[in-house]
Amino acid sequence: MNSKNQVAAREGWFTLDAERPRLLGSQCQQCHTYYFPVHEQYCRNPECESEQFEQIELSHRGKIWSYTNAAYPPPEPFKAADPYEVFALAAVELEREKLVVLGQLAAGVTVDDVKIGDEVELTLDTLFSDDENDYLVWKWQPVNGGAA
């Protein structure tokens, strides 16, 4: 149905496995702190001088730290749908990593469907397309159905 190539809108930040998408991050091998996106040059913990990191898959589920929506089309370099469709955004806290990651909420999920603390999981969706490629990005899908 779709013969375009599926590529990441930001290469190296997440896997493209449609069934099991994962964010790619790093863990410091000395102080064990986590990073998203991948960060392997120097540890940003001021107590740690490590330069040794392991690339890891981050938790694919987390809890909503906060959320909002974009009632008006954001400016370039965002590629807004035409006609414009309002989308929701969530900042999601990953329990193991103890960090918050930004993302859009899955298509069709509105601010009325979620609240702080709700569980969400990672999903992939097309951010925009050109003649050759669909550019994919991660989004957060409420675990209990969300937009029911």
Binding site: Y67, A70, P75, L89
Partner: peptide
């Protein structure tokens, strides 16, 4: 933040307002 999410400045202000 604009390219991947369309996260404008007001979106960040809104996260804190929602909390």
């Amino acid at each position: 933040r604009f390219r991947l999410f369309g996260a404008t400045n007001p979106a960040y202000f809104a996260f804190h307002a929602r909390r």
